[in-house]
């Protein structure tokens, strides 16, 4: 029993990732001053939140075999809506709820395009990127929408702490746990794996794929909108460029962590490790004083590495399946 558990841990996909994360942290911890200081760790935790929260919705979509590339722009939109509502005098809890509802509407549009019109998720979400990005600039008139100090209670949502842990980090972890449980323990969660793993089989088993993916699209955009408002709370303002890199960061992190790009595999633990790895890596690059342009290159390279890992995983999965079949 004990040895089999040990073997399982050794064989799991997570172990090499945890090891790599430790190496990355150790490397930057030694080479750059103050990388492991409490304040820097806390700021890393906070910067995990955007890609982490978008990653929650995105992972669910990826597992079901869908994708939403406009997530980052939906987050931007969410932040702007919150900031505008608070500016208009609406108390922030209400503003937050309205924002989440608006996010759900954005997801509904995408779900409509994918499931009713029959377009592919990635290209219709790419079209929505232009739409949201343009609207963001029109609504904000290309300026920051500031949240003034009278609404300071809202700030704590973005950067406040409970003990050592920042509040947005706690929100992210809670979301991951909730969605992890949904994926693992509920019938709905299992059908998500099924839709992503084998569409034909899922359909024959009576799974309503359109219904499931619609729910996931709506869910993803709602979480994105929430993530965007948390970023607005941290920066005390919202603008049209705040969260734009969120979707690619989230996809990179999720796939790096082992959420399959082809659907049917992955969990929230994978996502967490992936997000931590990417964030530590980026933060380390910044701390080591490398030109910021390198980060754009590295962002692309990381995505390629993530896809390579996904490719290797997929191959070994196919191998295992064919062995079972024999």
């Amino acid at each position: 029993m004990k040895s089999s558990l040990f073997k399982r841990v050794l064989r799991s996909k997570l172990l090499p990732l945890v090891a790599v994360t430790v190496v990355v942290v150790a490397f930057f911890g030694i080479t750059t001053n103050g990388f492991l200081s409490a304040s820097n760790l806390r700021s890393i935790m906070i910067s995990m939140c955007l890609s982490g929260m978008i990653g929650v919705g995105m992972s669910m979509l990826l597992i079901s075999g869908e994708i939403d590339l406009a997530s980052g722009y939906e987050a931007c939109m969410g932040g702007i809506i919150t900031a505008l509502l608070i500016k208009a005098g609406i108390p922030w809890p209400a503003a937050l709820l309205i924002t989440i509802a608006a996010g759900a509407v954005m997801g509904g549009i995408l779900a409509f395009l994918v499931n009713k019109v029959g377009l592919m998720g990635f290209i219709s979400s790419m079209a929505m990127i232009s739409v949201y990005n343009g609207l963001d600039y029109i609504v904000t008139k290309a300026q920051d929408v500031t949240i003034t100090a009278e609404h300071a209670s809202f700030y704590s949502l973005g950067a406040g702490t409970v003990g050592f842990l920042p509040i947005p980090f706690i929100i992210m972890v809670v979301l991951m746990i909730i969605y992890g449980l949904i994926l693992y323990k509920t019938e709905f969660g299992r059908t998500i794996y099924m839709t992503g793993g084998n569409r034909a089989a899922a359909r024959l088993a009576g799974v309503n794929r359109k219904k499931i993916t619609s729910i996931l699209y709506i869910n993803n955009s709602a979480i994105c909108a929430l993530a965007g408002s948390l970023v607005a709370a941290r920066m005390h303002c919202a603008n049209a460029a705040a969260c734009t890199s969120g979707s690619i960061d989230a996809i990179t992190a999720a796939v790096l962590g082992g959420v399959s790009f082809r659907g049917g595999d992955g969990n929230m633990g994978c996502l967490f490790i992936g997000v931590a790895l990417v964030t530590f890596f980026n933060s380390g690059l910044t701390a080591s004083g490398l030109q910021s342009y390198w980060q754009i290159v590295v962002q692309g390279l990381l995505l390629v590495v993530a896809l390579c890992i996904d490719f290797v995983n997929e191959r070994s999965r196919q191998k295992a399946l064919s062995q079972v079949a024999i």
Partner: peptide, 23 residues
Amino acid sequence: YLNFPTFIATIAMASISQGIAYL
């Protein structure tokens, strides 16, 4: 050769080439 989905592989290439242009 690596069977990456086209759109995501080319998105990665987009940021690599854009970054090199900056460099």
